[in-house]
């Protein structure tokens, strides 16, 4: 049996005439990693801030661990962990002091030194926060989100600004949290992050959820497409297939019949003596699906 850690029904948030969130529905099960994807200004952060209890909703119903975040108070906050989009820590405190300071009010506290080890800041334990690099500060922020040993963790763009190796480390930390049975609500700009971490993803655009599913099945009807890519430094109109030209002769063909397309393309190439450098056939990635969904939504909205 699965239990919902978060249930959101017809959530709306308006600022005067601006409708930032327009009827969002989703649920996150206990122990699940759920990613909310969407462009800037789509309503992701507003939705998450409502779930964290930082903002009041304009309408709809929200249940987080059995609480209404607006009224849950101390008992509610004792059970959630929040990693904010921007790192906010008193810059004059040391790493250890900052973790102790923010850990104080929780009924369950993780050991500060152990947390420092988990996020890989052992060398910086007694360093002032202001001397940390941007990536180190993000890792401290992650530690602050975990200090109360929460059941449910909100990660708002947790790896923005990380270098690739720091990102991998953060993913390992998040994977370990999943292994401990924690529920995680993640927002991110990085599709590889969602692909790697999330059990399920939802794409939000213009304040509405436009697609929902697992990273491998979301946008099901778009999954049948194969993408053929190659380099051809000539006029795309001479090709026997409908190709979209990119920069430096990069060509892209989307097809539901890859065998036919490849046959036409390669037999033409062989006859014409064209090399078709870098020829690949790929299934659409989460990023391809995402860009298509969001692109259509934005074009549709502008029309």
């Amino acid at each position: 049996m699965t239990v919902a850690a978060i249930t959101v029904e017809n959530l709306t948030k308006s600022y005067g005439d601006v409708h930032a969130v327009r009827g969002v529905d989703f649920h996150v099960e206990e122990g699940e990693v759920f990613a909310l994807l969407g462009p800037n200004g789509a309503g992701k952060s507003t939705s998450v801030e409502i779930l964290e209890g930082h903002r009041k909703r304009s309408g709809g119903a929200v249940d987080v661990l059995g609480f209404d975040p607006e009224t849950g108070g101390r008992e509610f906050r004792d059970r959630i962990g929040v990693v904010l989009q921007e790192t906010v820590v008193e810059k004059e405190l040391t790493v250890l002091e900052a973790i102790q300071f923010h850990g104080d009010p929780y009924s369950k506290r993780r050991d500060a030194e152990e947390l420092i080890e988990i996020v890989g800041l052992e060398e910086k334990t007694t360093a002032r926060v202001k001397t940390l690099s941007g990536g180190q500060q993000r890792r401290l922020e992650l530690a602050l989100g975990l200090v109360g040993d929460p059941e449910l963790i909100f990660l708002d763009e947790p790896t923005t600004g990380f270098d690739p190796s720091a990102r991998r480390q953060a993913w390992t930390v998040i994977d370990n949290l999943r292994a401990l049975g924690k529920t995680i609500l993640l927002t991110t700009h990085y599709m590889d992050e969602a692909q790697n971490l999330a059990d399920r993803v939802a794409v939000i655009a213009r304040g509405e959820i436009i697609a929902e599913g697992t990273p491998d099945t979301i946008g099901a009807d778009r999954r049948d497409v194969s993408i053929v890519r190659f380099v051809f430094n000539g006029d795309a109109s001479v090709l026997p297939v409908d190709a979209v030209a990119g920069s430096n002769g990069a060509m892209e063909v989307k097809t539901r019949e890859p065998v036919e397309t490849l046959y036409a393309l390669t037999s033409w190439a062989k006859q014409s003596g064209v090399a078709l450098d870098g020829l690949t056939v790929a299934r659409p990635t989460l990023e391809d699906i995402y860009l298509e969904l969001v692109g259509e939504e934005e074009n549709g909205g502008d029309a």
């Binding site: 209890g53 906050r77 929040v82 904010l84 921007e86 906010v88 008193e90 923010h102 929780y106």
Partner: peptide, 11 residues
């Protein structure tokens, strides 16, 4: 955002 961070905890 320090006050917001404090309001994220049970303090």
């Amino acid at each position: 955002g320090l006050l917001k961070r404090v309001r994220s905890t049970p303090m």
